[in-house]
């Protein structure tokens, strides 16, 4: 079960990209915290700033054009943004490690799996190559790679996608990190493999006693594995809460829209999926006011005047909407919305 001490705190993070077309505010004022042994889900559509948030935590934003312009990222009280390059190298992959979206491209094609795995170990542990090799075998076994001795000397192209993601996970847990960030770890995989990988991550989390930030656009994944969820839209957090509350009582029109656009087994056949009208805005020259208002069916005049701050609608449940309290009070669950036009 998640503890109460915060292991990671992100405060007002702003990551901008300076492009020829203008400043892309990919992440614009994101704040959240992560508790020990907790799994936090970050949800949002493509371009909502989920991955940039994750990359910012490890300061992996390509610079230029990207830059973290403001904010604090506190790991056990230490600001990651203040670290020098040496401290950062010691930190990355050691205290916080990362699993990426596409295992097809995140492993270097010209080095063996063993080489890349040992490299991750030797970057942070002062042990002999032989010991690192032993450790690699253990890791590969933990993530369920068969025929380890032979596989150790295989190249990434000799592995399937699921196997590669297992290797990525082995690399990520090689140094017993406190936090594992998984950036859409299953998006590029087959559905059957997706479940295996998520189960594996869940298992290893229990074993290694680490916290997980899982970035996804799959609400099913969030529902199953996350303790708390942050929903992002256009670089800002719009709703943040424990997972049950978000699913049973979404208090932001965007989250409500997301819930309505997923297929459910228990849904009646005559119900038609209701997509969110319109498309996400360009992150250059964002308008004043709430960014979602142009797609929002609850929009009022105030929405175009200023951006709504996160409002605590119930303990630990935040929503960035002027009408959050109304939405919270207005309906008990999603069925109410289904009957609406």
């Amino acid at each position: 079960m998640p503890q109460n001490n915060k292991i990671l705190e992100v405060k007002n993070l702003k990551t901008y990209f300076y492009t020829d077309d203008g400043i892309v505010k990919a992440v614009d004022g994101v704040s959240f915290d992560l508790k020990e042994l907790e799994t936090l889900g970050i949800v949002g559509e493509t371009g909502s700033g989920k991955s940039v948030t994750a990359l910012s935590i490890l300061r992996l934003i390509p610079q230029p054009p990207g830059k973290i312009v403001d904010g604090e990222i506190l790991f056990k009280g230490q600001n990651i943004l203040d670290m020098n390059i040496k401290e950062l190298q010691d930190f990355r992959g050691n205290r916080i490690s990362m699993i990426f979206q596409d295992p097809m491209t995140s492993l270097n094609p010209v080095f063996t799996i063993g080489n890349q795995l040992m490299e991750a170990i030797l970057a942070h542990q002062t042990i002999t190559k032989k010991q690192a090799r032993e450790k690699s075998f253990q890791l590969l076994e933990m993530v369920g790679i068969p025929d380890i001795k032979r596989r150790f000397n295989s190249y990434p192209h000799e592995f399937s996608g699921g196997m590669r993601q297992r290797v990525m996970i082995a690399m990520a847990i090689a140094n017993n990190p406190d936090i594992l960030i998984a950036d859409e770890p299953t998006t590029a995989l087959d559905v059957t493999i997706q479940a295996q990988i998520l189960e594996l991550m869940h298992e290893l989390k229990e074993k290694t006693k680490s916290s997980i930030i899982i970035i996804t656009h799959d609400l099913g994944v969030v529902a199953k594995y996350a303790n708390r969820v942050m929903v992002m839209y256009a670089g800002k957090p719009v709703e943040f809460s424990e997972v049950d509350k978000i699913f049973y009582k979404p208090c932001h029109p965007y989250t409500i829209g997301l819930m309505r656009s997923i297929t459910r087994l228990d849904q009646e056949r005559k119900n038609v999926l209701k997509p969110i009208e319109g498309s996400p805005p360009s992150l250059i020259d964002l308008p004043i006011g709430c960014i979602f208002r142009v797609r929002c069916e609850f929009a009022v005049k105030q929405c175009s005047l200023s951006y709504p701050e996160l409002l605590e609608v119930s303990p630990g449940h935040y929503s960035a909407c002027f009408r959050a309290n109304e939405l919270f009070a207005g309906f008990k669950n999603l069925d109410f919305l289904k009957t609406k036009k």
């Binding site: 990359l55 992996l60 992959g93 995140s106 991750a120 942070h124």
Partner: peptide
């Protein structure tokens, strides 16, 4: 390439 980000994320030097 993505594997460059992976390499940095592992904590390797530039």
């Amino acid at each position: 390439n993505d594997y460059i980000t992976t390499a940095y994320a592992k904590g390797l030097s530039q």
